[in-house]
């Protein structure tokens, strides 16, 4: 890692934090923030171990974006996998001592492994599947992305309309559709 990097935030990040705080009646915000911070620290830690210079860290509503100059796909894959890996490890370690922290880590770890292009799982798919399967890998990656996205949208509508889980699931589904990026992640783009 270089000597330092710029940390910026977007308005969406603070808005998401305010909404979480408003809805949080179970005191899930502190353990969730800690789990998120450790997730990003794991990405940065692996980048530091691999001597990859990081230029910026941007905190957004959907998570953080790390700008790094990666030269090898395997290095990028390790750095991406470190975040959800640490969350799943912490979920197992803190299961007895701090179940709420464990729950936050479990949720964060599994959600990040979904094969959506903006998440760690999607970025891993975009990196590894073309390496293993060639051009078929790119197609498989896109199919996985769209299948996951439409499953989430259907689940959101179902949760709101059938299970009566309020407006949040359908609003989140709408945001997912609105913020839909290119299914194939650009190399070097953050995670």
């Amino acid at each position: 890692m270089s000597k330092g990097f710029r940390v910026t935030t977007t308005g969406g990040f603070w808005a998401a934090l305010a909404c979480f705080w408003l809805l949080d009646e179970w005191d899930l915000l502190p353990p969730f923030l800690l789990a998120s911070a450790l997730h990003e620290a794991a990405h940065l830690g692996v980048l530091s171990l691999l001597h990859v210079p990081v230029s910026a860290l941007e905190l957004r509503a959907g998570g953080a974006v790390i700008r790094a100059q990666l030269r090898s796909e395997m290095r990028e894959a390790w750095a991406i996998a470190a975040g959800p890996g640490v969350n799943l490890l912490l979920a197992a370690l803190f299961f007895r001592a701090w179940p709420l922290f464990s729950l936050c880590n479990l949720t964060l770890g599994f959600c990040n492994l979904l094969p959506l292009s903006m998440l760690d799982g999607g970025k891993l798919c975009a990196l590894l599947l073309p390496c293993w399967l060639g051009s078929t890998g790119e197609t498989v990656c896109q199919i996985l992305h769209w299948l996951t996205l439409f499953s989430l949208v259907i689940c959101g509508v179902w949760a709101t309309c059938v299970l009566h889980y309020g407006l949040l699931p359908v609003l989140l589904a709408g945001i997912f559709l609105w913020k839909l990026p290119n299914p194939l992640a650009k190399p070097g783009e953050g995670w």
Binding site: L23, P99, S102, L163, H164, G166
Partner: peptide, 24 residues
């Protein structure tokens, strides 16, 4: 909270939290 999560949604989150406590 009721508008955004619904009473069913709030109960589901609570159940998830407490079931983990109970399991632990």
């Amino acid at each position: 909270r009721d508008l955004l999560l619904g009473s069913a949604g709030r109960q589901a989150v609570e159940a998830a939290c407490f079931s983990l406590w109970d399991a632990a």
